[in-house]
Design a protein around this nucleic acid. Sequence first.
DNA 1: TTTGGTGCAAAATTTTTGCAGGCTA
DNA 2: TAGCCTGCAAAAATTTTGCACCAAA
Lengths: 153, 153
Amino acid sequence: MPENQEQFKKILKQNGLKVTTQRVAILEVLNCRPGKHLTAEEIYDYVKIKYPEIGLATVYRTIQLLSELGLIDKLNLGDGYVRYEIGRKNAEETNGHHHHHLICLDCGSIYAFQDDLLETLEERIKETMGFAVKDHEVKLYGYCSKCRGNESI
Amino acid sequence: MPENQEQFKKILKQNGLKVTTQRVAILEVLNCRPGKHLTAEEIYDYVKIKYPEIGLATVYRTIQLLSELGLIDKLNLGDGYVRYEIGRKNAEETNGHHHHHLICLDCGSIYAFQDDLLETLEERIKETMGFAVKDHEVKLYGYCSKCRGNESI
DNA sequence: TTTGGTGCAAAATTTTTGCAGGCTA
DNA sequence: TAGCCTGCAAAAATTTTGCACCAAA
């Protein structure tokens, strides 16, 4: 993550933005938790551990900024909270591949999986509807193995 | 929609719920606009045309109820609003098939398309992860034909 | 030094809840 | 008639904004 951090600073500067302690700290929180889906409030709580002076407004302003820069991804998992996670492009592990979410209707657990299955679909849509797909988001709702074991659904 | 309305009343009764003017009116608003994605406030405005006495709280309570009954679908199109549309199972036209959304990053238009492509994926997930998929939601972000014509993106 | 960024508090939004009265079954 | 449902208003919860001060470049 040190190299990741350098990358981040460069991106800020390239966009005429300043590198502040708060911005680095917020990205760090998300970067240390790939695959975690945090709400603004949760990010705020984590950042406060290291920087208790930070304000919630700054968290909101920063995640909006990071989201626009494509450094973090905004998620709506259907539970009424807007959530964020480190951007696909930045998380080394995911290699820039899309990943999607499995949401358990019983226990609420969220699992990630990767798949490039949609590529053929996206091409077809471009041909038939003239719509050029740039990004996608897939959510599958169902019951995870744990919950399927517990009860008979 | 008259037969649809009978069906709706039956469902309410089956669940021990009462058939009220407000509930019928709200479902009617959504039922008359298949494919439209309305926010609670928008639903409220439409219903008020016929029933000016209705309260916003009732709209919220009712859409939550209708959503639980599966009569309407909750949508998060990423624009910060929670939206609703008539449920797949009830909209005759869609035949109960899943439909997904194309969201234009430029003009914000939302198009629907149908596809059963995910079925093979869902089976694979069940086998490999033990996760039984019951429903899915797919959003594709990109640029629609109109916007692609206007500018060179 | 200059400009953008931050913290705080207040405001704005969106959604939920409590309660007295009204309507369905 | 009994109990669910509604409207209103107040409360909650989440996010945005204004402003004076502070910090990065």
